[in-house]
Amino acid sequence: MTVIVRAVRPEHRSDTEAFVRVRHAAIPHIIFTPESVAYDVLHAHPGAHFKALTAEVDGEVIGSATVGVAWDSPEPGIGNANVYVHPDQRGRGAGSALLRMAEEHLAARGVDTLYTWVLDEPANRAFAERRGYRARRASRFLSLDLGGGDLPPRGPLPPGVELRPGTDFGADPRPVFDLDAETILDEPSDVDMQFTQYEQWLADTWRHPLSSPELTTVAVVDGRPAAFTLGRRDGARYGTMMTGTARDFRGRGLAKLCKNDALHRARAAGCTQALTGNDADNGPMLAVNKWCGYRIAATEVRYVRELR
């Protein structure tokens, strides 16, 4: 059995469609489209050395991987490789071939610490551990039925608080970037991240084809942006990228207000499913999402391996 690993060619629709088919089968809790995959390849930061890969067996694409250097971390030598194989096609060598290609690609670019997300299933965890990876932290995929489920009602806003859609910042999204850059510093993670390049953030986040300023909410307190939730959309599916509050405004329930407001507007816009994710140690955000009605859909575990 021969496994052929190829880099996704963003200009080839068949490549991006095959990548998305595998991802939707293996990990349906994250929004991908052929357009978003092509965009991610074309607009990645040069320092990321980013690649999207597919693995083909007997003429059929059955595996996928995303590979990149953590260019936005202050610590050098860190990389990420996330491998997913179609659930009906495991055991045919696609995962091994993809991981081997990913490790070689990153090692050649100076990566010595490689992180990967692994679905919390015995076979997947055993796959990683046989290859020298060690388990670290867990993360939850959460799902919410917007079509039939109830949302918490919108209550009166505290004095001085205004909830504004992301479209209000279309001419100048810099305040949203500032909020994202501040809150990412406190997000639980194995790898510290810093958003220092505004133009790259615009490409990665604000101008991304899945980005939905209409379903993004920013809480403004006495004229100052204080909290936010960033929304993405693919048809009837609504996804939250990031929700956070500036340090000076924490403890006032602003993240909850933003999240609930965005969910109400997503439902009004015709979305029937809401998706998000949480680090298992992020108690405050898990509490907000539980209050909103989200339920755990799956769990991933982050693994790490030293390449050198």
Rank of each mutant, 00 (worst) to 15 (best):
V5G: 07
V69W: 07
L275D: 13
D279I: 09
A236W: 04
D172Q: 06
T183Q: 07
G223Q: 02
Q200C: 05
P165R: 11
L185H: 08
A227S: 14
T16L: 04
F127H: 01
G239M: 03
G160E: 07
M1R: 06
A7C: 08
R140K: 15
A128H: 14
H24R: 12
V69S: 10
T183V: 15
G68F: 12
T240K: 01
Q273I: 11
G132F: 13
P159H: 13
S211E: 02
E103Y: 01
D15W: 07
M193Y: 03
H12W: 15
W117L: 11
R295I: 10
P213H: 08
R140H: 15
Y198R: 02
R92W: 04
Q200T: 01
W206D: 05
K290H: 14
Y238L: 13
A269I: 06
S212Y: 02
R295S: 10
T33C: 03
A262F: 07
G223N: 04
V176T: 07
A298D: 13
W71V: 15
G166S: 01
A44R: 01
R237H: 05
D150M: 06
G231Q: 12
V22G: 04
Y238V: 09
N124S: 15
G132P: 10
Q273R: 09
G231A: 06
F19I: 03
P153G: 10
H45S: 04
V304Y: 00
L307Q: 00
P10F: 10
H264K: 11
F195W: 10
A171K: 14
E104V: 03
E214K: 13
I184H: 04
P209C: 06
G148A: 15
V85R: 00
G148P: 03
L163V: 15
L263G: 05
E306F: 08
L257G: 11
L114G: 12
A97S: 09
E199R: 06
A102I: 10
Q194Y: 08
R302K: 13
S64N: 04
H45P: 02
Y303C: 13
W201I: 04
D145V: 06
T66H: 12
R302H: 04
A81I: 03
E17Y: 01
Y115L: 14
G91C: 03
A65R: 00
R136G: 12
T272V: 07
P165Y: 08
T54S: 03
A246E: 07
P10K: 03
G77M: 08
L254R: 01
D58A: 09
P74D: 01
R130M: 15
A297M: 08
D222V: 12
P153H: 11
N80E: 14
T276L: 09
N82G: 08
S14Y: 02
T245H: 00
D58L: 07
R252L: 13
A246C: 06
V41Q: 09
A262Q: 05
A246H: 13
D15R: 08
L185Y: 00
D281V: 14
D120I: 02
P28S: 05
T116P: 06
T276H: 05
C271I: 03
N282R: 14
V37Q: 00
Y303E: 10
R265A: 04
R130P: 11
G77I: 11
A7T: 08
L286C: 07
P153M: 06
L146Q: 03
G147M: 05
A268L: 12
N260C: 00
G77C: 02
V41E: 14
G63C: 11
L53N: 09
Q194A: 13
L179E: 08
R136S: 12
P28H: 11
